[in-house]
Amino acid sequence: MTAPARSNRNVLRRVVGFLGEYPLIVAGLLLFFVFAAIQPHFITGSNVVNILIQASVLLIAGTGATFIVMTGGIDLSVGALMFLGAAILSSTLFGVLPPLVALLLVPIVTMIFGSLNGLAVAYAGVPAMIVTLASLQVFRGIGGHVTEQRSFIIPDGLRVAGEGNWLGIPAPIVIAAIVVILGAYVLRRTRLGRFVQAVGSSRSAAANAGLPVGWVLVAVYAIGGLLAGVAMVVQLGRLGAVQPTLDSGFELTVITAVVLGGTSLDGGRGGVIGTALGALILTIVENGLVLTGASPYIFDIVRGVVLLAALLTSGAPRRLLSWIKRDREEVLDTPLNGPSLH
């Protein structure tokens, strides 16, 4: 094989390796071009900004959920926790605080509620699904009592995270980008991230190795709670109102984004960047369907088909990568004077 041909193969291998790590990029690009072909407005810069703003809440909440799912856990209470945070923010108790203080306090409150989930999972031995199913009821119940199941309009001072512009960039995009980058960094480059992967891969092995399994679990649910609060602050800023059914069922969308992004429900494998791609794909689908004027009746069908297609497409680069590896091994195994395969 000549040097340029070898170089080309290396580039190809790197590209395919990258796509193998983040296969949803292929699915996302396919979707993007399909929608752009149907509706020219789809590809405009303002619509791309639109998509990023609309994905921001899911990006933030999904980052928190990724930590939890990476440990083999699940959080069914994230939507209810966001509603509870919104209810607290709209309550008269928080109404007397300066807006910035109130906005910073609410994620701390939701972090405390999230860490209660973690304590129950880590130290009471109750499965995460049961704990968070119960806390879903508790959080929505408390939120319902705080709001008396009525709607509230949010004052402009509390909408800065949803409506503001920082350095010319919409605040939801800035906040989501910071959260995703920080989340990816913590999960990949820090001791906590390595502990999370170890606990997710095998909780008993992690415990035998002397890792603080209990505290890792509490930490991931606390992170999930904190980011649910941040997501709520952004969402409320965008919506401008609290309603009794706010974020009902949102947990399924969050889990879909996480799983679509390649994080294993068994734990130990996945990451924040994958979740971010999953969240973007879900948002692109919603955006594209409205822009192309699709009938409301086919929205669910298209969502389901796109999800399935994205999952299938995401497997393709991995298969290609393994084919190239196998091919390479065959080349290395071939005697130097033997026939070239290419």
């Binding site: 119960a134 806390s135 009821q137 508790v138 119940g141 408390i142 319902g144």
Partner: peptide
């Protein structure tokens, strides 16, 4: 907590 929550939420 779960029972209280369910009562509260229901």
């Amino acid at each position: 907590l779960a029972i209280v929550g369910m009562l509260a939420g229901c």
